[in-house]
Design a binder for these strands. Structure first.
Lengths: 343, 343
DNA sequence: AAAAGTATTCAAAGCGCTTTGGAAGGATAC
DNA sequence: GTATCCTTCCAAAGCGCTTTGAATACTTTT
């Protein structure tokens, strides 16, 4: 059923060389001939054999994924969402994945093995930490890679896609401050992750701009689960001087926080304001919260797709993408934010 | 640096044929020769080129994954965990993945495309529903597959790895009944999934054995998130006749349920008993609950690894695995179960 | 009109493995 | 001693693509 290059070439009365070149966009092919070839491809449903391409070109047409198996990360709901974005794009180009689960302590060995195996053309990195050693490691392995997120400190010259976490939480905090809030709490992701640090910085900056100081006891770091959101919020509300507003690093955390607030019989949007970062998890839409949530929004899945696109573009030497992309999260105001109480 | 077969053969003064056969376990190789070959492999670090093997054998050495993008499923925390198990095993054998995100309505097309692409040797299926049409579909495509879970109704002759969900919840319910509980609630997974139906059946059976009937209003079905566990439990507790015990289909659901119970100031293990199914999610250990949770336990990651092993074994024609495996979940009694109150 | 490009095409080699169809040599059978 | 059978090995073909190095047919230049 499936035709191969040779048969296709025979059918067209051309050589394999010409057909191959026509398909791969080489310039030395007559435009008319190229059109004939393309037409024949459409008619026969020809699809090049990836295994043969791999062998001939030495490319793997695959991207390597190191699945972190660490507490606070592994089986994270956010990971699945990101992966869906990567896969969505990869499948369009018939790219494969090599999935490597890895504990943090043999991550380096995993990268090394993966790079040496020749099974992947490129890697991607996520869950960036401050001074993340993996960037230098991958550079040393001289295998192309794109980072999701950014490290803090260390070399700056590596390709990444990140959102401007500082700006996102700066914007969010500024809105709250404009609304009169002064005691703003932060329910953040794990402390060792760069995005958490940046979001905290955004909040700090907005406060300091108004001559206010961040109360460190109003900042909690944890894995981004519902449960931790709940606990953090509860502890905040138990204080003699509870915050009048809270920033959450994920809608998942917000879910728990909202529950704690409801339980305390406080009204969201008037007694206390809530802003969460929305990764656009299909399961958890901020507009479906009992009180629709004000959010800083940036799709995790879109980031995955973008990274796949860049990785693949790089491998196929096509497409010209900026090395470093910093996406701006949108601040979307819904009903969970309002003026600070007593004002 | 990396040697190939030809070089290895020259080094040994043998033909490529013999070396290849020695490595692939063919019988027509002198035992001593084979040992020499193996030794040389160790010394040189020879690794066969997968692309070449693929081309020569026609095998893809890859397994296809259709990532469901459906509500209640997508980005499910359980999926990541299962995937980690699959990947863990696959990486040992240098197998790759083709990840295909797919909405439910073009799942069939996705399978078809995947099977036709020649990019995968086998598929795996999960999230089984009653009378699941995908089984017949894959049989028709005549591509090897292993199912995680089982359908209900329809053909019975297909390979699967499943846990005995009926027995698990039967055992759990029986324990509760022995402890004097009569009103047992069930916070279950989505109603359309087979495992949910079976777990409900297990509970029903245990009750009926003692002449009791399942109160359908004490059964809730939902996506397995914290949030839904909380809501379900809350609704149960709001009733004039709340249950004295509850079964949860996941520790994630139990997390929410426990919270609702605490909020109602009830004591787990005396006022109300809780048993949850434990998929062994590293992030959510039942022993770390405020009151350690009695569970039916079966590792999701282990199931993933097992399925990968069977899939790979089938592709490589090695290993002889039973077609159908029904794992028994362990019932582990901790502090969340106790005698029914007032007894 | 000869020389020198330019555009277009092709035959054949090669990627690194598996597998087919022998072949050589020794042991066994007749 | 010849025929037959194992055992063990090998040369070469082939998997389906890309790419090198020419070849062919036109144009353009001189």
């Amino acid at each position: 059923m499936a035709v191969n290059l040779k048969q296709l070439a025979e059918l067209l009365g051309l050589s394999q060389t010409t057909v191959s070149r026509a398909l791969n966009g080489y310039p030395e092919v007559n435009a008319e001939t190229r059109e004939r070839v393309l037409q024949a491809v459409r008619e026969t449903g020809y699809r090049p054999n990836r295994a043969a391409q791999r062998l001939a070109t030495g490319k793997a047409y695959s991207i390597g994924l190191v699945m972190p198996i660490a507490s606070g990360i592994d089986s994270d709901i956010h990971f699945g969402e990101f992966l869906a974005g990567l896969a969505e794009e990869a499948v369009k180009h018939d790219f494969h994945f090599v999935l490597n689960p890895s504990a943090p302590d043999d991550e380096e060995a995993t990268f090394r093995r993966l790079a040496a195996s020749g099974n992947v053309d490129a890697l991607f990195l996520a869950y960036m930490r401050a001074n993340d050693p993996r960037i230098a490691m991958l550079k040393a392995l001289s295998i192309p890679f794109v980072v999701h997120g950014r490290s803090i400190g260390g070399a700056k010259d590596y390709p990444f896609v990140d959102i401007d976490n500082t700006a996102a939480f700066y914007d969010a905090a500024r809105l709250l401050i404009q609304l009169g809030h002064r005691r703003i709490a932060l329910i953040n992701g794990p402390e060792y992750l760069a995005f958490s640090l940046r979001r905290k910085k955004g909040l700090t900056r907005a406060l300091e701009e108004k001559g206010l100081r961040l109360d460190e006891t109003l900042v909690h770091h944890s894995a981004m689960t519902d449960e931790y959101g709940y606990r953090s919020m509860q502890r905040f509300l138990d204080r003699p001087d509870p915050p009048t507003a809270v920033l959450c690093s994920s809608t998942v955390l917000a879910l728990g926080a909202v529950r704690a607030i409801n339980q305390a019989s406080l009204v969201i949007g008037s007694d206390i304001s809530v802003i969460a970062h929305d990764d656009v998890l299909p399961m958890l839409k901020p507009e479906n919260f009992s009180v629709p949530l004000t959010t800083t929004r940036s799709s995790l899945r879109a980031a995955g797709a973008r990274i796949a696109k860049r990785l693949i573009g790089g491998i196929l030497d096509r497409g010209d993408y900026p090395e470093q992309e910093l996406w701006r999260a949108e601040l979307i105001v819904r009903a969970s934010t309002g003026p600070a109480p007593g004002r």
